[in-house]
Amino acid sequence: MTIQTITPAEAKVLVAQGAALIDIRERDEYARENIPEAHLLSLSAIESGERLGPFDPFDTVIFHCQSGTRTAQNAQKLADSVAPAKVFLLEGGLTAWKKDAQEILADKSQPLPLMRQVQIAAGSLVLAGVGLGFGVHQGFFLLAGFVGAGLLFAGISGFCGMARLLAIMPWNKP
């Protein structure tokens, strides 16, 4: 079954008519910026069995994430979580919503989402390792290799030590 995608303008009309808009991003992403009408129900919460509803066949539910990728990859799982409601995916996610000049709530005092922090930290360490490897001593290339191995391990296993470490940092505490 193919689940239809809709534009931000179409979603805005459906929300005004009573459709439920559900943000499947994680709590830290939602806290930094979100669509005012959106309810948070993260993909991880859906996967662990949390639900909104109950819904009936006359209800309309629109799911969105940051770029539309997570909703597209998990479309059937999302639809099953609100069955038998009619389901749409917001094409392009929050990014498209903002490009369409739709209203968002932003709280820049919230920390960056954890995965962005991991990307910044890993990228910085790799650049430092390469720069120091060329400029100071070749042994610093091991730093870049270590970070690369950590990212490879995280991708294969689903466990990211850097994310766990960053999650306990003071700026990420509620």
Rank of each mutant, 00 (worst) to 15 (best):
L151M: 15
A11I: 13
G123E: 10
P113V: 03
L94K: 07
A83Y: 15
C65G: 07
N34V: 06
D107R: 10
Q66H: 13
T2M: 09
L165I: 08
C160N: 10
T60N: 05
E26Q: 10
K173P: 02
E37C: 00
M169S: 14
S44M: 07
E103A: 10
E33L: 11
E47W: 00
G145N: 09
A154D: 05
F55A: 07
F140W: 14
E37P: 00
F159Q: 02
I104K: 06
G150D: 03
M115Y: 06
K86A: 03
A75K: 08
D100C: 05
G150L: 00
R116T: 06
F88S: 01
L105E: 15
A45G: 04
P111D: 14
L152Y: 11
I35H: 06
A85D: 09
V15G: 12
V13Q: 15
K98N: 04
Q110K: 15
S42D: 06
V118S: 12
G139R: 14
A11P: 13
Q4V: 10
G68H: 12
A16Y: 00
Y30K: 00
I46H: 03
A16I: 00
T69K: 14
D28N: 12
W97S: 05
G68F: 12
S48Q: 13
G49V: 03
H64Q: 13
Q110A: 15
L132P: 00
F88T: 02
Q73T: 02
K173W: 00
L152F: 15
L142M: 14
I35Q: 08
D59L: 02
F55R: 08
S67V: 05
Y30N: 01
L152H: 09
L43T: 07
A75L: 02
F55T: 03
G53Y: 12
I22R: 01
L132E: 01
G139C: 03
K86C: 05
R51S: 07
L78T: 03
V15M: 11
K12E: 15
E50Q: 14
E91G: 07
I22C: 03
V136P: 00
V61W: 03
W97E: 02
G155N: 04
G18K: 05
H39S: 14
G161A: 14
L143N: 06
A83E: 14
G49R: 00
S157P: 06
I6M: 12
F153S: 13
P170Q: 01
P8Q: 09
A45T: 04
L165T: 07
T95R: 10
G123D: 10
P174V: 08
P8E: 11
D59F: 03
E37S: 08
L41T: 04
F88K: 07
L14V: 02
L166Y: 10
T69I: 15
A72P: 03
I3K: 10
R27V: 13
E37L: 01
A72I: 04
A128W: 06
L43E: 06
A9W: 04
F88C: 03
Q76F: 02
E50W: 00
G93T: 08
G133T: 02
E50F: 03
R27C: 01
E29A: 11
F159L: 09
A144S: 14
R25S: 01
R32D: 06
H39Y: 08
T60K: 13
A83V: 11
G129S: 12
V13F: 04
K77I: 13
Q17M: 09
R164S: 11
A122I: 10
G18N: 05
P174H: 11
A121M: 05
V13N: 11
K173T: 11
